[in-house]
Structures are given as C-alpha cells and as structure tokens.
C-alpha cells in the first residue's frame, strides 16, 4: 500500500459518500445519472465476485472495503430507482448504456491476461469502469449545468483513478509491478474527466456553478 493508492481509495470512498449524502439530504437525485450508478454497481459486483464465491472471513480491510463499495453502490441505485424515483431525470439520462456494456464485454473476451471466467469478469469490470462515467457527463451536457455538490462528487470520483495512476507509477518504479490492462483503462478513464476537471478548477473552486455553454 502506498500513499497514492491510500488517497485514491479515500477519494473513491468520499465520492460515494458525497453522492449518498446529496441524494439523502436533498431527497432528490436530480442531476444524477442512474445509469452511471448502475454501471458502477455492475463494476463492483463483477470485480469482487470472489467475495461471493469462496467466502473469506472479513479479517482485512480490503474485504471490508469491497463490501462497502458493493453495498453503497447498490443502495445508491435503490435510492435513485426506487425511493426517490420521482426525482430521477430519466429524460436527460438518455445515453444508451448498452453501447458501453457490450463493447466492454467484447473487449474483455478479446484482450485479457487469462481466458477464464473470473479473469474475464475482472477485465470487463475494468473496461466498464473506464467508461461508466459517460452517462453522467452526458446528462450534465444535456442539462447544461451541474449542482455544486454533484461537481464535488465528480471531482472525487475522477481524482480516485488519477491517484491510482500515480500509484501505478510508484509500483512500477519500486515494486516493478505492472498491470497493463488496469493502467491503460485507468488512463482512458482519467482523460474522460479532463474537461470536467478544467471546469471544476476554474469555476467551482471560485464558488461559481458549472454551467456549460448551451
């Protein structure tokens, strides 16, 4: 464990907590893409499937973190699609999730380190996570604005994988550990946030709201 991965995981936890708080406090999921949250839930379940296969005692933080990620993302989907369904902005959350799931699944079958079920599920989860934020970014571009709290959520969510890139550089240098598939997907994922990061740093930090040119 290194400082980059530690802060990456903390940033990821913060993102999940910020979103849950936003929906719970405002009792509304306006401006939140339900599809992105569904895709994240699928990522966690397919990536941590080993938790369900051979049960291991929750002796270490990694297992606990995995369970937190899975339960928090499923709970977020519950809030969006059931509890606060009336506030779900289905019209603007219109990116076709199939256009993300099918290519990720196909690519996972073509490019992977080992052709076995668990490894393909893990690879699928990595590819899907790289593009899972697209429906959320698409929704913001359609509505033309993002609530400040939602911007903080996106900033934390984007920072988590950016910090993981630093973690991979660190591990390459000090542990000569390389996981090419995760690195390439992580770089793509972080690049997708670039224009949002620019808007966030130039606007939200100064207290302005993000409003995209209509």
């Amino acid at each position: 464990m290194n400082i980059f991965r530690l802060f990456g995981d903390l940033s990821h936890l913060a993102a999940i907590a910020i979103l849950l708080l936003k929906i719970w406090k405002t009792r509304s999921c306006a401006g939140v893409s339900g599809k992105t949250q569904l895709l994240f839930a699928v990522c966690f379940i397919t990536r941590y499937i080993d938790l369900f296969l051979h049960f291991v005692s929750l002796y270490n933080t990694e297992k606990v973190m995995k369970l937190i990620y899975i339960s928090a993302s499923v709970f977020t989907c519950y809030l969006i699609f059931f509890k606060f369904k009336a506030t779900y902005d289905g019209n603007h959350d219109s990116m076709r999730a199939e256009f993300l799931i099918v290519p990720a699944a196909g690519l996972a079958c073509l490019i992977n380190t080992k052709f076995d079920a668990i490894e393909i599920l893990w690879t699928f989860s990595i590819y899907l996570e790289a593009v899972a934020i697209l429906p959320q970014l698409f929704l913001i571009s359609k509505t033309g604005e993002a609530e400040t709290i939602t911007s903080h959520y996106l900033f934390a969510q984007g920072s988590y994988r950016a910090l993981y890139i630093l973690n991979w550089i660190y591990r390459y240098h000090y542990e000569s550990h390389v996981d090419t598939i995760a690195i390439v997907a992580g770089v793509v994922q972080t690049i997708l946030y670039c224009d949002f990061f620019y808007l966030y740093i130039t606007k939200v930090v100064k207290g302005q709201k993000i409003v995209l040119p209509a």
Binding site: R5, Y69, D179
Partner: peptide
Amino acid sequence: LSPFKKHDEL
C-alpha cells in the same frame, strides 16, 4: 486455496 492473487488492488 485461492489462486495466486494477481489483482491486489480495489
């Protein structure tokens, strides 16, 4: 006996 844990990150 879990196979050698290749992916040790979240």
